[in-house]
């Protein structure tokens, strides 16, 4: 039966060729993979594969350059917005995106994030927030929720001792250099479709020199959170989204 249906003319979905053939190193169920895929799909649909340069971070997505079939640069920890700034200014006709996690973007790279956003660099910044340092083994991140257990907050994040979770996206939305700031997620089909539309908008904005387009993706870390992928997505919905609510924070006309 299905043999009759599996024909080129019936194709409705296939892996985008803007992803390489490499199997991603991410843990099963990790939102990094889904976000990579929809960024690559946007690049494919806009037909800008040959005019795009991506900047990979340090963290779980350090090897993103092995997966995006576009020219890629791997930055030092937290410095992706600085690289992206120079690339865009030196190649203004190109589409430039940075891709960073919460430790990279909101802790060690806070200055580069804030100042790239405040200067209004004409780039797309993708920010994966899963409230943890995944690559180094599940330590506390700037975005770790109160009472959340990590390898360096084993009894839960104690605000008095360890400080508060940082809503960096709310901060960058205040800066005049950002034109589009939104918070999305990718754990259901509807949310993936919505997030992809946001990423598309964030790339389209580069055509009009509008400033930084900033897309936060609230994501999971089932290994770091020590849950199954499906349970991690449920925990994300109940806990992460209560503190990091989804939706647009800023849409400039």
């Amino acid at each position: 039966m299905s043999k009759d249906i599996i024909k080129p003319e019936n194709l409705v979905y296939r892996r985008t060729p803007v992803l390489t053939k490499n199997t991603m190193h991410y843990c099963p169920g990790c939102g990094h993979g889904t976000t990579h895929r929809i960024v690559a799909e946007v690049i494919e649909e806009m037909g800008i594969q040959e005019q795009t340069i991506g900047i990979a971070p340090v963290g779980c997505a350090v090897l993103a350059y092995n997966y995006f079939e576009v020219d890629m640069q791997e930055a030092a920890h937290g410095r992706a917005p600085a690289l992206a700034t120079a690339v865009k200014r030196l190649k203004p006709d190109f589409f430039v995106f940075s891709y960073q996690g919460d430790g990279d973007l909101a802790a060690i790279g806070t200055a580069e994030t804030i100042h790239a956003c405040n200067r209004g660099e004409n780039i797309t910044m993708i920010f994966i927030n899963n409230g943890i340092y995944g690559m180094t083994g599940g330590q506390m991140a700037p975005t770790t929720l109160e009472d959340m257990k990590t390898a360096t907050s084993p009894y839960g994040r104690d605000i008095a001792m360890m400080g508060n979770p940082l809503k960096i996206t709310e901060i960058v939305a205040q800066l005049p250099g950002t034109c589009y700031v939104t918070r999305q997620a990718v754990y259901t089909p509807a949310l993936v479709r919505k997030c992809k539309r946001a990423i598309r908008q964030a790339f389209e904005n580069q055509k009009e020199n509008k400033g930084v387009s900033f897309v936060e993706v609230v994501s999971n870390c089932n290994s770091g959170w020590k849950m199954t992928p499906v349970a991690a997505n449920q925990w994300l919905e109940e806990n992460m989204l209560a503190f990091y609510p989804l939706g647009d924070l800023k849409v400039s006309k």
């Binding site: 930055a75 410095r79 600085a82 690289l83 700034t85 120079a86």
Partner: peptide, 10 residues
């Protein structure tokens, strides 16, 4: 820090 990383990107 930002300067040298801008140099890196360029």
């Amino acid at each position: 820090v930002a300067s040298i990383n801008m140099v890196y990107g360029g």
